[in-house]
Design a protein around this nucleic acid. Structure first.
Length: 563
RNA sequence: GCACCAGUAGCUCAGUGGAUAGAGCAAUGGCCUCCGGAGCCAUGUGCGGAGGUUCGAUUCCUCUCUGGUGCACCA
């Protein structure tokens, strides 16, 4: 429709350039002023006349057009009012398609997404939840656009931290305690290590040497490591199950441990490796960056080395067009360094293909999360708390609901996910229970409630099936048109979200549709005597329900039919 | 010290060069014998500051203030 109007204008203004026409099409519609609005400032540059004059001239020249009801000049703006029937019919037919919102822009392309990636022997806390949820949503969004996605959980299962754990286990731990308490005991040992290391710094050297032994294949070290890793993974899987999140690969850091020598050789062969304070680095001062550490002075590898190895491995095995890293913004410099090293090794694809997707810090009552000070909230606790609160509300509002537990899980988890995906990733988050557990307004449960309401209406309509064969003039009431306009943004919303790597675009869209629907529901009665009115409105309800369901699915949130 | 990110309503946030800058929360008042009241409607204050580019700046540039983060042997 916008293209049509742009062409109309172009026909009246012969010396219009191509970029002028593109500019015309970029202007978003302002429904309160006209269905489509075009400012004439751009035209003024081409035509060397005042924009107000141009607006009147163009309006007069266009005359009668079959799909327009009116053209209004407001100062320097041209407002086009489209005939409602035509407008509505076009939109509805598009929206009835099963794959509405999908596209083929990613066909034949592979995207690797590295997300979640928790550290073994540490609890899964509210901060880890963000990368997990954001990564999962980016996966769904790209899949909707036709990309093939490899979901990679780059588990933090290698590194000096294990040396620390082994030292702590040997000094202050016991097999029974670890078997009994699991991750909680590992956490205790880790904290204990740091406390002791403050008093006796030589413990740090001991830890580093245990890690060096791991890298050399020491059997004792590796068997303890494997044991701790298994315990942690089991714990992580519980949270993933609750969230309904899956991965294609659990190739953590240890997976790449035998590939680091190759990385070092490549860097060395390229003449990039230099020695500094006993360690081996790539000097990046030419790019205003701190050097990238490749080998520590005790000869063992560091995370950068393993990240480099992972990139080569993924490029060779998955042939990605892009590889996304969903991690905290505090790791920005690290990824900039790693990506630069890859580029310097002669891989021109690196700057385009390797993308760090940072997100803001989660804090708790104004302070940084810290396991050691106990200033921390675990992911599982948040999810379980939200689920139980939802369960209470269900008992109060809808006690006869079948499968309450499953619905409570869907809505509780939905509330947590939605809360995390509703704003730009980069914003720091201050965790607050009361905000999370308030389910009014712009929240997951509000959107899910609207979905359940749609489903409920549709259940109540006997013999209704959605169809293109309806009376479109029924859907030209202000509330119906507003709702249709919101829904019509879906395809652009999905591609915008992918382009910006921002799930919040989809979350906001879901709320906008829900709000528009609730207004429509309030204004226009659906289940009425008149069959043609009923069918047309019910078709709109059907489209709304499906769009909300599909949009929420892109966030990893399920929408029950009743709640 | 250097670098990166953020600063919009009392609070949490949208706003990707266009018209009178929008939502939710919180507060107050209202909602039809009728499709789910986790809903709908009504009522107020605001772009950290100063310059610059532009016909037009919350948006782009420079400086500045405030907060957060990072700056090699942790990840």
């Amino acid at each position: 429709m916008k293209t049509k109007i742009a062409k109309l204008i172009a026909a009246q203004v012969p010396d219009l350039t191509e970029s002028d026409i593109e500019g015309l099409m970029e202007i978003p519609p302002k429904p309160e002023l006209g269905d489509f609005a075009f400012p004439c400032f751009r035209l003024a540059k081409t035509m060397r006349k005042a924009p107000q004059v141009i607006a009147s001239e163009v309006a007069a020249a266009i005359g009668d057009v079959d799909f327009l009801s009116e053209i209004k000049v407001e100062g320097a703006y041209l407002n086009f009012f489209v005939k409602k029937d035509t407008f509505v019919e076009g939109l509805v037919k598009e929206m009835l398609a099963d794959d509405y919102g999908s596209s083929k822009e990613g066909e034949g392309k592979t995207i690797c997404i590295d997300y979640s990636s928790p550290n073994v022997a540490k609890n899964f806390h509210v901060g880890h939840l963000r990368t997990t949820i954001i990564g999962n949503s980016l996966y769904k969004i790209h899949e909707k656009l036709g990309y093939h996605v490899e979901r990679i959980n780059h588990i933090g299962d290698w590194g000096t931290q294990f040396g620390k754990l082994i030292v702590a286990y040997k000094n202050w731990g016991s097999e029974e305690a670890v078997k009994k308490e699991g991750v909680a005991e590992l956490m205790r040992l880790y904290v204990k290590f740091h406390d002791e290391a403050e008093k006796d710094p030589s413990l740090n050297d001991e830890a580093r040497s245990w890690f060096a032994r791991m890298e050399q294949g020491d059997e004792e070290a590796l068997s303890i490591w494997q044991w701790f890793k298994d315990i942690s993974l089991e714990e992580f899987m519980k949270t993933y199950k609750l969230l309904g999140i899956e991965f294609d690969h659990f190739t953590g850091e240890s997976f790449y441990r035998n590939m680091t020598d190759d990385v070092i050789k490549r860097i060395s062969d390229a003449g990039l490796l230099t020695e500094s304070d006993g360690a081996k680095i790539v000097d990046l001062s030419a790019y205003d960056m701190a050097p990238c550490l490749i080998v520590k002075n005790d000869g063992s590898s560091i995370y950068a080395t393993r990240d480099l190895a992972a990139i080569f491995y993924r490029k060779e095995n998955y042939n990605f067009t892009k590889c996304l890293y969903v991690t905290g913004q505090e790791q920005k410099l690290h990824f900039a360094q790693v990506f630069k090293v890859i580029e310097l090794l002669g891989n021109e694809w690196a700057p385009e293909a390797l993308v760090h997707i940072p997100y803001g810090l989660v804090s708790l009552s104004g302070e940084k999360l810290s396991t050691r000070s106990g200033n921390i909230i675990y992911a599982e606790d948040i999810l379980l708390e939200a689920i139980s609160k939802i369960k209470e509300i269900i008992e109060e509002k809808n006690p006869d609901l079948p499968n309450k537990d499953e619905v409570a899980r869907q809505v509780g988890v939905g509330a947590v996910l939605f809360n995390d995906l509703y704003n730009q990733r980069i914003k720091d988050v201050s965790f607050k229970w009361d905000k999370l557990l308030n389910f009014a307004g712009e929240t997951g449960p509000y959107v899910q409630y609207t979905h359940a309401r749609c489903a409920s209406i549709l259940r109540g309509l006997e013999g209704f099936t959605p169809s293109e064969d309806i009376d479109y003039s029924v859907l030209t009431t202000p509330a119906a048109v507003d709702l249709l306009k919101e829904i019509s943004r879906f395809p652009k919303v999905v591609s915008d979200a992918a382009e910006r790597y921002e799930p919040f675009v989809v979350a906001r869209f879901a709320v906008d549709v829900a709000q528009a629907f609730n207004k429509f529901y309030d204004a226009d009665r659906i289940n009425v005597e008149d069959e043609s009115v009923r069918n047309a409105r019910a078709t709109l309800v059907h489209i709304t329900r499906k769009t909300i369901n599909d949009a929420m699915a892109l966030l990893g949130i399920e929408c029950p039919d009743q709640m």
